[in-house]
Design a protein around this nucleic acid. Structure first.
Length: 480
RNA sequence: GGCGGGGUAGCCAAGUGGUAAGGCAGGGCUCUGCAAAAGCCCCAUCCGUCGGUUCGAUUCCGACCCUCGCCUCCA
């Protein structure tokens, strides 16, 4: 049995077979860089990292692309209010985003295209859509995508374009929401969406020249242009948060397939834009939708400020299945911290036993782990495998049943597992000289059987943020 | 109104037509000068409610209750 993944297109779990094995082309919708990312954003990005790492673990050669949306309404408003240059403003939040990814042990995507670097590709796509009669220029100077005309177009000979594949919606039977109903549009049809937005005074100096006049791109066209430019007109995997399925991803499909592809590849190859769509569910915080007024709105930085480590946040985010709404709580984060420490203890003990590295990882734990993740990334089951292994390893260690060879094999297996979960090693901080001196004094008192003095020193050390653990090999210091 | 998720122990969270993984928290014991770490044991007669199918349902079907998300630029 190989890897099976849920596909939003078919709403079912199916074998994952890339177009050109062992290569896998994977695109994940990235952030709009107008502020620091919050923990909900990062659930999706950690999920994408899990997918990438598991694919690599399973022997695929992954090309991972994540876009940076660096032109958008909220960005324009912020630079208008603060008088900053677009690139300065977005550059700062892009850097912060990449730092946060690193903190959460996410591998950097192979390509991080910025929307403003791909305007040419977007113009080419819009031109193709105009040429095929799917896009039209409205009186306000903007260019819109006509869903009606799209549905009457062939994506390749003998195959009509479809709209509404991802969300199973009846296009002709939609009820406009309050906001849509009250807005005014120059569009032919309310469901049509902007490909190119004509320049308005509020845009300031942020605009590009186009065959349809000055303006800026619509949101959806960015992802179509960037993904096809870097991965080809048809690629394997497209991921994002569940809210993006509609309209964003649906519109991406429409633009891409309606255009026939950035290089005509969809039309000629008779292949869909994307083979396989994965969507990550949202998270709640303390049982509620995250909001600043409820005080449950956390950025990664907020959590670091509360003393949590990126690897602990990562573990919590990876503790539930990606298609389930996940309830993120600070108590849960405390729990994740304890759980990570449990793994650390076990792995540290194994490392102490190892004399040389192994090339034959313990097969049982590895196989159970692989089967769990192959089953549509069942992380809960995979963690259960890990903790079963930790318990058995601890038992064997305590019973003196673990020799250097077994320790090396187990450690090799763990290293492979951790190439996917990516908790990494516990950071070993330098023990300050003051703590070291106190610990030595405590050890001396203890050897002299002056336990009152010894315990008093341990309490002092504890108050300074360190724990003393007596082991068969002598006292050990750990950060509290 | 349409579409789609959920409701499993104090909390988080898997799962199966045959009687409930794992983590955190909690209780007891072992080890320890005392701790810590670790181990062992305990902790859901029951999986939203009510019906139905079945030898048997938490798992299938129906109804209902509750909850969350999407319905045109929010991960």
């Amino acid at each position: 049995m190989g890897l099976r993944l849920h596909n939003t297109l078919t709403r079912s779990v199916a074998d994952f077979i890339p177009l050109t094995p062992p290569q896998v082309s994977m695109y994940c919708c990235g952030p709009t860089v107008y502020d620091y990312g919050h923990i909900g954003n990062f659930r999706t990005f950690v999920f994408a990292d899990l997918v990438r790492r598991h694919l690599a673990f399973r022997g695929f050669q992954v090309t991972h692309v994540m876009n940076i949306t660096d032109v958008e309404d909220k960005i324009l408003r912020r630079i208008r209010e603060t008088g900053q240059e677009l690139r300065d403003f977005t550059g700062r939040y892009t850097a912060a985003f990449l730092e946060d990814l690193t903190v959460l042990h996410c591998l950097s995507p192979h390509h991080l295209p910025r929307a403003t670097d791909h305007i040419d590709g977007m113009l080419r796509l819009i031109t193709r859509l105009m040429d095929r009669g799917i896009a039209y220029r409205a009186p306000d100077g903007s260019v819109y995508f006509s869903i009606e005309r799209y549905r009457a177009t062939e994506r390749w000979p003998g195959c009509l374009c479809q709209y509404g594949q991802l969300v199973n919606l009846q296009v002709d039977d939609q009820r406009p929401t309050e906001r849509v109903a009250t807005d005014e549009y120059d569009k032919d049809n309310i469901a049509d969406f902007a490909l190119w937005k004509a320049r308005v005074p509020d845009d300031g100096e942020v605009f590009w020249e186009s065959p349809w006049g000055q303006g800026r791109p619509g949101w959806h066209i960015e992802c179509s242009a960037m993904s096809m430019a870097l991965l080809g007109d048809s690629f394997d995997l497209h991921l994002g948060g569940e809210d993006l399925a509609f309209p964003h991803h649906e519109d991406e499909i429409a633009q891409s397939e309606g255009s026939g592809g950035l290089n005509g590849g969809i039309h000629e190859g008779r292949r869909p834009f994307v083979q396989h769509w994965l969507h990550a569910a949202h998270l709640l915080v303390e049982g509620k939708k995250m909001s600043k007024s409820l005080g449950n709105f956390f950025t990664v930085r907020d959590l670091l400020g509360k003393g949590f480590a990126g690897r602990e946040i990562r573990m919590l985010l990876l503790s539930a299945h990606y298609r389930e709404t996940f309830n993120f709580t600070l108590a849960g984060l405390e729990g994740a911290r304890t759980a990570v420490a449990r793994i650390d203890e076990c792995v540290d003990k194994l490392r102490e036993k190892v004399t040389k590295a192994s090339t034959t990882p313990s097969p049982n734990v590895l196989q159970a782990f692989t089967e769990a993740l192959d089953d549509d990334l069942n992380v809960s089951r995979a963690w259960a495998v890990v903790f079963d292994w930790v318990r058995e390893t601890n038992r064997a260690l305590a019973a003196g049943e673990v020799d250097a060879r077994r320790a090396a094999n187990d450690l090799a297996a763990w290293d492979l597992i951790d190439s996917v979960f990516a908790l990494g090693a516990r950071p070993i901080g330098e023990v300050p000289a003051q703590i070291m001196a106190l610990a030595e004094a405590r050890d001396a008192a203890k050897k002299a059987r002056d336990f009152a003095q010894s315990d008093s020193l341990r309490a002092q050390i504890r108050a300074l943020g360190w724990l003393v653990e007596d082991t068969p090999k002598g006292p050990k210091l750990k950060p509290a």
